[in-house]
Design a protein around this nucleic acid. Structure first.
Lengths: 206, 206, 206, 206
DNA sequence: GATGAATGAGCATTCATTCAT
DNA sequence: GATGAATGAATGCTCATTCAT
């Protein structure tokens, strides 16, 4: 009450605390079911403080979404830097996706929420743009690898790289949803099996 | 009984009217953003009447979801009855999925809503079961066709049919989501291009 | 569906049926908690039919209240016709009250409801008048018996007969309420014991 | 802390304000007819604030009921501390009851409401227990005074003290109800007259 | 900066009543 | 007369957001 020393967190540095707490409760209960009071409690701060860092509950969801995607992108970049043939990189990208799905099934829920929370809101436009940009980012990476393989003569040149990128990303997203509802599916083996088929279909025949 | 044509709707028969109206507004604005009053207005009936046919707003969402899936399943069954090689049927299934996605992008929104609406609700269990059953239904159809092809020697026997079914369904779902946010994607050509790759990867090599 | 013979009740004679059903459900659950649909169902008729006989749910409560009081008054009149000294009649009136309370604890609930249902209603005035008239009726009977006893030299002349009537009626009403909440009280012995005290206090001393 | 006088009410101290406002409007219009918005308006606060202090409208009714009874009990305790013979204390208890009835006819309405509001509610059990406990409290006080008088040889030993207590309490309750509907009755003279009769009936004869 | 008491817009749901059949 | 499908007014309650301290 009168202790002069800061408790644990430095002043004005509660942002990651809130972000972490929000991510957790969003994952557990879903955006709509979560109250700002709950987020604050989980973060161990006052309700009003949340609004010092985020202008609204919705804004907080945006931040969580971006936070998650940044982390994923970072790992993708690291993976690509390792080099290898296009087939190798493609295989590793799929593995990474499977790993993410396996590790963070509840994160999948946050993404679902993000999609759904946008609807009918004032900021629907902004949500859509944010989703679009994110999707394009992932797609760009995938398509680039495919095109690399085509240029190198590894992969069939007549295949539409963009289409393959779209569908592979779609498959990874959709897999997360299915596993969210059916925990018996094993993402790693499923992705590996399907990946082999796709790679077989992509490679140049002699 | 003697009136030449029913002016609007007969008494006691407002169920499809409500279902249709609900599907529309759910698609347009999302479950959370829609009010029961809005649904009633769209259906041209009184607010209370909605509750004569559905015990709650949530129950109505369930009904819409099931209604949609039934319609889709019916078309799938029709498609499979046409026969053809496994490759033909697989190609046609993908085409059908693309067509659905193209035709009913807004339907995709209802599915998203259904997923998201489940979270943190009292009836979360029921939602999950409903989704699980639906997914398994689609997967079963796809896996069966693949296995048919394997038995007929058309498709490589060493491929995990279930994994392929999971991922193809996932890809179709995920495609819907991407198109929902990025209308520049053309589902038909994208699916066709990707389908060729997958089929190439599945077929038996000489 | 096409049977020409009336089922059980003659046409246009459903009034007592409704009255009986309403009395039962009001007693069981209270006026506010009962729906018109419930009353109709209990009476084995259609919801709309209730409105053929009573213009509103409130009106029905009025009718039930009056119905009950009429029955009680009838028994009081019969009791007074048996004659006897004022003390005898007073004692028998109290016995009758105890009996009613014992027999129809749930009826007590209807009276409670009637009191409470009036409040804040459009027809508050009418409720109050109805209660007032009923109370005055009972009080009149009691006061008359006391005055009879005073005129006959049985009971002390200096006692305010009206005050005694008011308080005895009040005691019987209040007893019903207490028993409604505390079923361990036996109305007959309680009233008998108190009645002896009051009669001892009323009688002329030598 | 340094402001000379609080303008309206300090933060976090709106409980008595709400209790007072609720008591007033409940008395005026009855529990069922009152809206939470009305209570808030009367208290000069926002609707949501009511729910900061009471978890539901029903809970508020409970609080009002207990508040009232506490106040009454306090005065009863003060009265008994004054001492005197059993007859004196009994007479004073009846006088106090008459006074309460005269002063707070509208309070009577709240009690009626409380009784009636219980019916058919989920918390019916709790209502009944609350009423039972309250009744037993009043009865205990009355019975104890009578037994004191019997032990002191003032009052007839063969009289059932508990029965007298039950009926006197009942009479006071019932009086309140009658006066609520018939303002011409004067509680003080009525109770005094009846009290003399009962005391005469209770006292030991030579 | 941090807090949490106060706020009120917003909405699902109930149910008495009507009226076409 | 009898019916019950249709209706919409009415209200308790939640919770994101504000702002005085």
């Amino acid at each position: 009450m009168s202790s002069p020393a800061p408790p644990t967190t430095a002043r004005g540095e509660k942002r990651p605390l809130i972000l972490q707490a929000a991510t957790e409760v969003f994952a557990e209960q879903g955006f709509a079911a979560v109250t700002v009071a709950e987020i604050a409690e989980r973060a161990g701060i006052g309700k009003g403080t949340v609004y010092e860092y985020f202008s609204s509950k919705e804004e907080l969801l945006f931040a969580v979404f971006e936070w998650m995607n940044e982390a994923i992108f970072e790992r993708i970049r690291g993976l690509l830097d390792e080099g290898g043939t296009a087939r190798d990189r493609l295989r590793r990208l799929l593995e990474l996706g499977a790993e993410f799905t396996a590790e963070q099934i509840d994160m999948q829920a946050v993404v679902l929420d993000f999609w759904a929370a946008s609807r009918g809101t004032r900021s629907e436009e902004r949500y859509n743009r944010s989703c679009l940009v994110t999707f394009r980012g992932y797609r760009g990476v995938l398509a680039e690898v495919v095109r690399d393989g085509q240029r190198a003569g590894e992969l069939r040149a007549e295949v539409d790289a963009e289409a393959v990128a779209i569908m592979l990303l779609a498959a990874m997203d959709g897999l997360g949803v299915q596993i969210f509802f059916d925990r018996e599916i094993d993402p790693r083996t499923t992705v590996a099996a399907f990946g082999e088929v796709v790679l077989a279909g992509l490679e140049v025949r002699r």
